[in-house]
């Protein structure tokens, strides 16, 4: 009786183990590709990073938004408490952070939508839209606070 051919088992047994923990090559000191901290910060990368950070900031801000709306739904007492909070210095800080994130993410989001349509990919266009976006978001934030403080203050 002959042993049935088992090419699969033979192949597996003979194969080089390529898992990193069992691989001498992977353990050796090979050069790593340069990472973020190696590079000088550029407008392009910094604005991109802040788009993500402001997005996460807005996600945190939704907790405050939900608290505010739910308090209003609960009744006059609860709503008065939240309104007093947003009138305090810490409330102003939260609102300021939220407004910065909101206008930044809005303006840079419009920039992203333009890219999605295929516009503004030349390097000088990317820099121009970057500075324009920064100026617009700062202006919008400042205008919003001037209006807000005029109404509230």
């Amino acid at each position: 009786m002959t042993t049935p051919y088992n090419g699969f088992a033979r192949t597996v047994r003979g194969a080089r183990d390529v898992r990193p923990e069992n691989n001498k090559m992977a353990q050796s000191q090979r050069p790593l590709s340069p990472h973020l901290e190696i590079y000088k910060p550029q407008l392009t990368s910094v604005l991109s990073i802040f788009h993500r950070l402001t997005g996460v900031g807005l996600a945190v801000g939704t907790l405050f938004l939900t608290w505010w709306l739910i308090a209003a739904a609960i009744g006059p007492g609860a709503f008065e408490t939240t309104q007093a909070f947003y009138g305090s210095w810490f409330g102003y800080l939260v609102l300021f952070g939220f407004s910065v994130c909101l206008f930044y993410h809005l303006c840079n989001g419009v920039r992203h939508l333009a890219w999605d349509l295929g516009y503004g990919f030349e390097i000088e266009d990317v820099y121009r839209s970057g500075w324009a976006m920064l100026a617009t978001s700062v202006t919008l934030t400042a205008v919003a606070w001037m209006i807000g403080l005029r109404i509230g203050g």
Binding site: A72, G75, P76, F79, E80, Q83, G87, I147, G148, I151, G152
Partner: peptide
Amino acid sequence: FLMIGADHARA
């Protein structure tokens, strides 16, 4: 903006 300083009735 419209809700700045608003009471519950205004909301």
